[in-house]
Amino acid sequence: MTTISIWRWPTPNGLPPLPLVAALCAVLGAMWFTASLVEVDWVHLVGSLGKMAAFAGHFLVRPDWEYLPQLFDKMLETIEMTVLATAIAIVVSLPLGVLAARNATPHIVVYRVVRDLLSLMRALPELVWALVFVSAVGLGPLPGVMALALVTVGFMGKFFAEAIEVVDHKPVEGVRAHGAGWLQVRLFAMLPQALPDFVGTVMYILDHNLRAATILGLVGAGGIGYDLVMAMRLFQYDRLILIALAIYLVVTLLDRLSDQLRSRIIHGARA
C-alpha cells in the first residue's frame, strides 16, 4: 500500500500505459514459452564462456601468409559477385519499380501483380535460392550471382517503387501539361526526382549484398564463404583469422563509403 502511494507513473491512474504493458507482456510471454525451443540454458551459456575464450585464444596464431594470394582471389570474387548481381538488379528493378509504383503504374492490376512478384522474390533468403540454383546450374559463382540478383530485385524494385510514390506531383503535372507522353512523364518528371533516393537505396543494397556474398560459398555458390567453412571445419585458425579480417576490412570500407555518399546526397553535394 505504502509503496503504491509513494511511487507512481505520470499517467491519470498512476499505472504505466496499457499498450506498453501489453506489448511488453506479449514479448516476454513469447520468450518464456519459446525458451525451451531455443534450448536456452543459462548454466550452459555461462559455462561455455570459458570455451568461448579458449576459442578466441585459437586466433592467437601466426597467420598463414601463404594463403594470402588465394584469399585475395576469393575476396575479389566475392566483390565481383556483389557488383555484378547489384548491376543486373538495377537494370531489372528500374522498370519493375515503375510498374509497382501506385502513381506510375499503367494499371492497378499490373501494380498488384508486380508488387506480389517482388515480395515473393525477396521472401526467401539468398542462401536458399543459392542452394536451389546450385543444384540447377552447378557449383561456382553463377548460381550465387543469380540468387543475389533475384533477391535484390525483390528489395530494390520495392524501394524504387516507394521512392517514386513519394515524388512531388507538381513537376509531373508540369511536364504532362506540355504534352509529354506516358514514358516521357516517367522518365523526365518522376525518375529525376526519385534519383537521390535510388542512389541511397543502391548503396544500402550493395552493403547488404556484400555481406550476403561472403556466405554464399557455404552452399558452393562462389565467394569467400567456401574457404571460410573449410577453414572452420579443418580448424585452420591461421587462415580463419585472415579471412575474418579480410571480411571485416572490406565490409567496413564499403560501409564508410556508403555512409559518406548517403550523407552527401542528403545534405547536398558539399564537403
Partner: peptide
C-alpha cells in the same frame, strides 16, 4: 534509479 523507469514520488506529482 526510479526516474529512468518514469517513476515519480507523489511529492513530485
Amino acid at each position: 534509479v526510479g526516474s529512468v523507469f518514469y517513476l515519480f514520488r507523489t511529492e513530485d506529482m
